[in-house]
Write a protein that binds this DNA or RNA. Structure first.
Length: 334
DNA sequence: TAGGCCATCTGGTCCT
DNA sequence: AGGACCAGATGGCCTA
């Protein structure tokens, strides 16, 4: 079961999400709106448009065809009296204010989501759609990692994260992980491609491989320019666990009590605007955002890179038995 | 300048 | 009846 870790929990549990988003008292908000409207050309145009449409309506009434019949046929709008017009306008404005408030609530929730998916950056915000996609991929990747119950493959993890994302976002995510973004290419269908060696080739040695050369940096015959891109299939990784062969096919189907990870940001937090000091940190970049509401699990990180490891090829699970899961669940199930 | 993203307005529909 | 939700339209801003 997915819990709501942060401050949105209350908001999200409301039957009408966003309904309780702090909004100005309506009369004030209307006052503000009027003030606001005076600053916004958009609204100016709307208001002006209303005036124009009213005028046009009146003018159209005067338009008649050759037979002298009004050009505008069919049921006519009832002419509203001045008071009714005002009341209608007032209600419309109130509805606008509510709608704005609702959207602000939605955006606030989205902003919170941005903070708990990888690569949160205040300066380079993910778009809404990319945030949702990344969040979905993130949940999928974490779920897969948990259910696999074994050492995760960082490259596969990142590729899952990047699946369906735009190239800039893919670059951002890859950049967050300090992977060579050039290794992650997105084809026309949004499928993540890998140039050069496949992640598995990179992860595991095989005859003829050059394990000293990172993918994308190969100076051998495995050079990406000489070798066609290999499509990295997810089906092999996911099929054992889910009915759906890939994240794009929908959400994983959980039979029973397989909870998606709660908030793994503490485990796998990647902060774009806070680059790690690679030379000094053996825990390479798996930093923890200090955003409010986050539980620091720095010392319990699942994802570790051993000091001697050449990132990103040797990513260790701290505990094969996933003790961290319990810790995390405990941390987020207050 | 085109395209992407976003905020806002708006009218329709559904629900309480 | 009124509020929430939704989708379409529109215009502004930014970037390649």
């Amino acid at each position: 079961m997915l819990t709501l870790p942060f401050e949105e929990s209350q908001m999200m549990c409301e039957p009408r999400f966003g309904a309780n988003y702090p909004r100005e008292s309506l009369p004030e908000s209307l006052e503000q709106e009027r003030k606001h409207n005076s600053d916004r050309t958009n609204s100016d145009m709307r208001e002006a448009g209303d005036d124009i449409s009213d005028r046009e309506e009146d003018e159209r009434e005067d338009e008649r065809d050759d037979d002298g019949l009004p050009k505008k046929r069919g049921p006519r709008k009832k002419k509203l009296g001045k008071e009714q017009m005002d009341r209608s306008r007032l209600r419309r404005n109130e509805a606008n204010a509510r709608e704005r408030s609702r959207m602000h609530g939605l955006n606030a929730a989205l902003e919170s989501l941005r903070k708990v998916v990888p690569c949160y950056s205040k300066t380079q915000k993910l778009s809404k759609i990319e945030t949702l996609r990344l969040a979905k991929n993130y949940i999928w990747a974490l779920s897969e990692t948990l259910s696999a119950g074994k050492r995760p493959d960082l490259l596969a993890f990142v590729q899952t994260l990047c699946k369906g994302l735009s190239q800039p976002t893919t670059n951002l995510v890859a950049g967050c992980l300090q992977l060579n973004a050039r290794n992650f290419l997105t084809d026309h269908n949004g499928e993540v491609m890998f140039s050069g060696r496949s992640p598995y080739d990179a992860m595991y040695s095989y005859p003829g491989s050059d394990m000293n050369t990172p993918p994308g940096h190969s100076g051998t015959s495995l050079d990406s320019s000489a070798k066609p891109f290999r499509h990295y299939s997810y089906s092999g990784a996911y099929e054992p666990y889910y009915e759906n062969p890939s994240p794009e096919s929908g959400s994983p189907h959980f039979d029973g009590q397989l909870s998606p990870p709660m908030n793994f940001n503490g485990i796998f937090s990647l902060k774009h605007d806070d680059p790690p000091d690679y030379g000094k940190n053996s825990h390479y970049g798996m930093r923890y955002c200090s955003a409010p509401g986050r539980t620091a699990l720095a010392h319990n990180s699942m994802y570790r890179v051993s000091p001697e490891a050449r990132f990103p090829y040797d990513l260790h699970v701290r505990s094969q038995s996933f003790q961290a899961q319990g810790e995390v669940n405990g941390s987020f199930h207050n």
